[in-house]
C-alpha cells in the first residue's frame, strides 16, 4: 500500500547555509490511509515544524528543507513547486491548528471562511453553492442552527465552536490527510473531549489518514494507533501506540511517561526528567537526550545512535536497545541515579 504521507530523512534548517540551525534532523515516519498517527514531543522537539515544513507552511527564508523527501501519495512535495503544493494543501490535506481563537480571520463571516476553502480549489462552483456546502459542513461538525451561524463572525463563538469551524474548513474538500496540531491544547477539558470526538467522526466520514500532534500522551493514547516520539528535532521511538506506551524501549519515552501526572498515579510515582530540552543553539553532541538520560554512557555523547528497526513494528534511536524474541529491551550496565 502506498502511504498517504511518507517523510524520509527530513531535515529542516533555519538561517544561512553554514550557520544554520536544525529544527528537524533526519526525521522519518509515514502514515497509511485511514490510520491515525500520534506525534508526541515537548516544545522544541520539531513535531509541528516537520509537518509545517513538509506542506510548505513555514516562511522560507529563513526555513528550508535541506535534506530528505516528503511523499504525499507517492509525489515528493519537497521538490514540487509552491503552486502545486498549494493545490494539494487544503484540498487533499486539511489542517487543524492549536489556537482556535486566533486561527480564524476576525473580519470574515465563518460561512465565508469555510466556503473559501471550497472556492479556492474549485473555480467553477461559485460562492453561492460553496456557502450552501459550508452550512452542511457546519452541521456535520455538530454546530446547531448552521444557517444562521454561518453569517456570524469568529468572535461570537466559544473556543470549542471555533475549533469546530476550523475542522469544517479542514474537511471541506474531503482530504486524504488530516493534520491536527495540538487541536485541543487551548481548550477546556470538557470541550477537549467533544472536539476529539468531532475529529474522530470527521476522520471516519472522510476516511482520511490523520496525524495528531500533541504534547499530551493521554490525548495520543485515546486517538492514535501508531505513535512517533520526537525529541530535539529527531525521532526517538516509533511503533504501535499501545505497545510503546505499555512497554517503552527508549529511555526518553519511558521518562516522558513517568513524569506526566495522570489520574492513576500518585505524587511519588512522578519522576521528573532533570534539566530541560536543549535549544537549537546548544544542541548536545551525540544523542540529543544524553545529558538528561539516566542510562547515559560515554558513547552517547560522541555518537548519534542510528534510528533502526527493533522487531517487526518498532523503531528506536538508542545505542542500548537490543532486539529480543519478545520485541526489544534496554540493555545498559547501570543507571546513573539508581
Amino acid at each position: 500500500m502506498v502511504p498517504t504521507l511518507s517523510i524520509k530523512d527530513l531535515t529542516v534548517s533555519f538561517g544561512k547555509p553554514g550557520r544554520e540551525l536544525l529544527a528537524v534532523n533526519g526525521v522519518t515516519y509515514d502514515v497509511q490511509p485511514g490510520e491515525t498517527l500520534g506525534v508526541v514531543g515537548e516544545s522544541g522537539s520539531g513535531k509541528s515544524v516537520t509537518l509545517l515544513a513538509a506542506l510548505g507552511l513555514l516562511p522560507s527564508p529563513p526555513a528550508r528543507i535541506s535534506r530528505g523527501s516528503v511523499e504525499f501519495q507517492g509525489r515528493d512535495l519537497a521538490r514540487m513547486d509552491a503552486k502545486k503544493v498549494r493545490q494539494i494543501r487544503g484540498k487533499d490535506v486539511g489542517f487543524i491548528f492549536q489556537e482556535p481563537l486566533t486561527s480564524l480571520n476576525p473580519v470574515m463571516t465563518i460561512g465565508d471562511q469555510i466556503a473559501e476553502a471550497i472556492v479556492v480549489h474549485d473555480q467553477n462552483i461559485g460562492w453561492q453553492k460553496a456557502r450552501a456546502r459550508a452550512v452542511e459542513l457546519m452541521s456535520l461538525v455538530g454546530m446547531p442552527d448552521p444557517e444562521r451561524l454561518a453569517k456570524q463572525y469568529p468572535h461570537e463563538f466559544s473556543g470549542g465552536m471555533r475549533q469546530r469551524i476550523v475542522i469544517a474548513i479542514a474537511i471541506a474538500n474531503n482530504p486524504k490527510l488530516l493534520i491536527a496540531d495540538e487541536p485541543t491544547t487551548a481548550l477546556d477539558v470538557t470541550v477537549q473531549a467533544q472536539i476529539l470526538d468531532v475529529i474522530r467522526e470527521a476522520q471516519e466520514k472522510t476516511g482520511a489518514a490523520t496525524i495528531l500532534v500533541s504534547h499530551d500522551l493521554g490525548v495520543i493514547a485515546q486517538m492514535a494507533s501508531k505513535i512517533v516520539v520526537m525529541y530535539a528535532g529527531r525521532v526517538m521511538e516509533a511503533g504501535d501506540a499501545e505497545d510503546v506506551l505499555e512497554n517503552p524501549l527508549h529511555p526518553y519515552t519511558a521518562a516522558l511517561i513517568e513524569c506526566a501526572p495522570t489520574m492513576e498515579s500518585e505524587l511519588k510515582d512522578i519522576h521528573p526528567i532533570p534539566g530541560q530540552s536543549p535549544s537549537l543553539m546548544e544542541m548536545p553532541s551525540g544523542c540529543p537526550f544524553h545529558p538528561r538520560c539516566r542510562y547515559r554512557q560515554d558513547v552517547c555523547a560522541s555518537r548519534v545512535p542510528a534510528y533502526r528497526a527493533i522487531g517487526s513494528d518498532r523503531h528506536v534511536a538508542c545505542h542500548f536497545v537490543e532486539e529480543t524474541a519478545e520485541g526489544g529491551r534496554l540493555v545498559v550496565p547501570a543507571a546513573i541515579d539508581a
Binding site: L57, I88, R89, F97, T102, L104, E116
Partner: peptide, 26 residues
C-alpha cells in the same frame, strides 16, 4: 504573522488572495 493567515495558506489560498482578502482588510 497572525495565525489566520496561516489558516488561509493551509486552505490553499493563493498568495494574492491571502494578502488582499485576509491581510489588507485587517
Amino acid at each position: 504573522r497572525q495565525d489566520y493567515i496561516r489558516t488561509a495558506r493551509a486552505k490553499g489560498a493563493s498568495e494574492r488572495r491571502v494578502f488582499i482578502r485576509h491581510g489588507l482588510r485587517n
